[in-house]
Design a protein around this nucleic acid. Structure first.
Lengths: 141, 141
DNA sequence: AGAAACCTATCAATGATGTTGTCAAGAGAT
DNA sequence: ATCTCTTGACAACATCATTGATAGGTTTCT
């Protein structure tokens, strides 16, 4: 398992077992499949098993070598990072992630990045209470 | 607990304990708080405890009588019905519901109703796989 | 050849979440 | 007195997400 499909990346044979090995990620073509599963898992700080599950669930679709090895692209990694942000930071479950992804595709806009950019701006709006019955006005008996 | 704040609604004292009692829901002002918690819970087919939790979580904000009794409006009920659709039918957790609600408010559009209307049209699109690395093209070794 | 990493498939442990149910004490209405 | 509501707290149960492990097989590298 040493096929280095093109890009000269830092040796992934150093077995990055959750170690703090840093990777210079290729910034050429984000759609190019370049990472084997162990590397992708390390980049994203997730278990390889989790990556496989995400694929089974249809969230990502990494490329395959002729010998059936998964290769993840930069876009795959970003997508997983986004899923992790939603699930770990915001607590959204996978069904929710699915809905959000579908929304994004349906609306044809990057609504998630809009939300993300506002979240990183430290705006962190309060979870607004229901707009319905806005003022819990006491009702006259 | 007999303050009937205005609308003459079917007697809620019949103790609708998940029974199949049907209610003629007032269709005048959807923001008017008219249902006590037991009635609202029955309409939505949910446990009263759950309604309280939804309120604690900030999803709904029912009105209160001078004696601290919750009164839910039609809009509250609709909002809970929508939450239930997301959680029970689509499997979204409450954190996901929260994100979707925030999105809706932020975009100032009824994206959820758009999704809902398409879901009820029996369209039920497949969970599209990741748009990244669309074609899992085999990579030459 | 042997080791490591990949593959699929399966099972299991653990922690978190959501819903429901219960109890206690109190308040309000009939 | 009885019923329904309130708050607060606790608990049971089912489900989900993540991680971990095992088995058997394949591929790659030394």
């Amino acid at each position: 398992m040493a096929s280095e499909p093109a890009t000269s990346q830092p040796s992934s044979k150093a077995e990055p077992e959750r170690s703090k090995v840093t990777f210079r990620r290729p910034d050429r073509d984000p759609t190019r499949p370049v990472y084997v599963i162990s590397v992708a898992a390390s980049i994203v700080s997730v278990h390889p098993r989790t990556l496989r599950i995400y694929e089974e669930e249809g969230f990502i679709c990494p490329a395959r070598t002729p010998t059936n090895i998964r290769l993840y692209s930069e876009n795959d990694v970003r997508r997983v990072l986004w899923i992790r942000h939603l699930t770990q930071n915001l607590g959204v479950n996978l069904a929710g992630v699915r809905i959000l992804f579908e929304l994004e595709e349906r609306l044809g806009t990057r609504i998630l990045e809009r939300l993300y950019s506002e979240a990183t701006s430290g705006e962190r709006p309060e979870s607004a209470p229901a707009t319905a019955s806005a003022a819990p006005s006491a009702v006259e008996a």
